[in-house]
Nucleic acid binder design. Structure first.
Lengths: 133, 133
DNA sequence: CTAGAACCTCCCCTGGAGGGGAGAGTCAAG
DNA sequence: CTTGACTCTCCCCTCCAGGGGAGGTTCTAG
């Protein structure tokens, strides 16, 4: 199967499939004499795996490592478990940061509603934000 | 005051100050004959305002708009309140997304610990992720 | 007067996952 | 035989807030 058919059956773009080849997560089985990428049926499963892994927040570089382990005959489970554990911890930290920021915005918002714009200090750009700094 | 002194007193880099000029959030009062940026004392307050606005998640383009309103003699409060309200709503949405993702990762993690790597289907890249797809 | 510090503009680089398009080769049907 | 669809590689562009450095002025202290 050539790249166009794979892209269509996978419901994605030719550009994406080429990009996946380039970063090493979905390489063609072989090339035709003229250099066309040729894929087998399993390319479709591989594509779905890549998407599933992306959907849980893994980056293509990490997905490539998982695939490389598998291709070396090792079971990547341990690596994957580590990876998702770390990613979950990172997410926790990120979520906490965003919550702090959101709470700050909410309190700025509440305070701003009690401020009178006419009592703005003309020397400041905006007392809503200056006051919150 | 020239750019180097401003950068030092503000505790930032010359590059950053030049960048702020370029995007229009902190422009010099004037230029010397030789083209050097010359700043007044208020540049320091302006700088702090920009940093405060960045700290609550506003982008330089938005900060520029706030400053532009102010420079046109309008009070940007309404605009700012809208902006932070929208940003807070965006953050809520983003936080919810990340929480979903994190919960998914946690459940993958829990399930993975009960799987036996030796029972991995060799045709799959990784049953941990495939199973979660 | 001269060395070196400070300043200028201009251009490329980062990271992630591709998108857009140029220019050229290849393949199938009419 | 030709046309049009498909494919190839290569290069630039996106977003964001700058960082790095080249190559060229200008200022300042000794």
């Amino acid at each position: 199967m050539k790249i166009g058919e794979l892209a269509q059956r996978a419901g994605t773009s030719v550009k994406t499939i080429r990009y996946y080849d380039r970063v090493g997560v979905l390489c063609p089985e072989e090339r035709s004499e003229s250099g066309y990428r040729l894929y087998g049926e399993d390319a479709l499963d591989r594509y779905r795996f890549v998407r599933a892994a992306q959907a849980v927040g893994l980056r293509l570089g990490e997905i490539r490592e998982i695939i490389a382990l598998r291709d070396r005959g090792e079971t990547p489970c341990g690596f994957v478990v580590d990876l998702i554990g770390r990613r979950a911890a990172e997410l926790d930290a990120r979520i906490a940061e965003l919550q702090v920021l959101r709470d700050e915005l909410r309190s700025l918002d509440r305070r701003a509603r009690h401020l009178d714009p006419r009592r703005c200090d003309p020397r400041l750009v905006c007392h809503v934000i200056d006051a919150g700094a």
